[in-house]
Computed example of a mutant assay.
Amino acid sequence: MKKPIAIALALPALLFAGHALAAGGHHSVDDANILPRGECEQETWFSREQGNTRALHAGVNCRVGPVELGLAGEHARGGGEGSATAWNVEVKWAREVAEGLNIGFDLQPVWQAHQRPRFEATRFAALATWVPHAAWGVHLNIGRDFVRSGPNLARYGVGVDWAPINRWTLTAERFLEERTHFLRAGVRWAGGQLWTLDFSRAQRLSGPAPSNWTIGVTFDLDDD
């Protein structure tokens, strides 16, 4: 029997300039895929930026009808900036338009805790995923951050996944977010049938946001 739909679980988390909430695990380039009907997953990751800022993220996403809905929180501390907590909800839609080609969109309003007004921004991205081979996936994102109290910010990126051997996937991304260009390299290990472990390094190429290291784990909450 499928796990009941529930989108009310998330740990506190953070929003600092240069650290943005993201879907698809901690990677900044999302794929144009959503969960199977009736299934949920839980994602948690920890990041450490240059300047000693540390961030903890946790959230739950569930498939509800034609879309995937999510609730997540982030908490950041350090780097001489004190601490900050933010929350976001997510609506994601995707569909196959040709063999091996999916398109979709992702919408994420963000709220900052302990301040007035709390609403900070809405992130929107158009998504595309092309799977030319079972071991390869190519992802393209084009979007924008609609900021309440500042100029809107462009965001875009391209990512490539390669699964050379069973249980292991290598990832590379080139992306822009928070006015900063990054290059990310990472690895994912499917340690069990219902969980995966991710580790990556995002290197700043230009812009104000710092480079960072991230480790994360994703759990499939399906109880079949």
Rank of each mutant, 00 (worst) to 15 (best):
F105A: 13
N88W: 05
E120V: 05
L14P: 03
T180V: 09
R63C: 02
I5V: 14
W189P: 04
W87L: 02
A84T: 04
A8V: 12
A10F: 03
A6G: 11
N52D: 15
A13Y: 02
R37T: 09
G104L: 04
I165F: 08
R63P: 00
A190H: 07
V29S: 02
M1K: 14
L183W: 05
W87C: 00
A32S: 03
L221R: 06
S211M: 11
A113M: 03
E41T: 02
V147M: 13
D222L: 15
V131Y: 03
P210K: 12
N33Q: 09
N102E: 03
A23T: 11
L170T: 01
A55D: 07
D198V: 08
F146R: 15
F16S: 07
M1Y: 14
N33T: 08
F199L: 15
A134C: 08
N152W: 11
Q203M: 12
R77D: 14
N212Q: 13
R77P: 04
L176H: 11
C62N: 02
E178G: 10
R77Y: 08
F124Q: 12
N141Q: 12
R188N: 09
E74C: 05
G216Y: 01
P66E: 03
E74T: 07
A72Y: 01
A76M: 05
T122C: 14
R179G: 10
R144W: 13
V160N: 00
C62R: 01
I34L: 01
V60L: 07
V60F: 02
V29K: 01
W162R: 02
P4H: 11
I7Q: 00
G207I: 15
S149E: 10
E173R: 00
A6R: 12
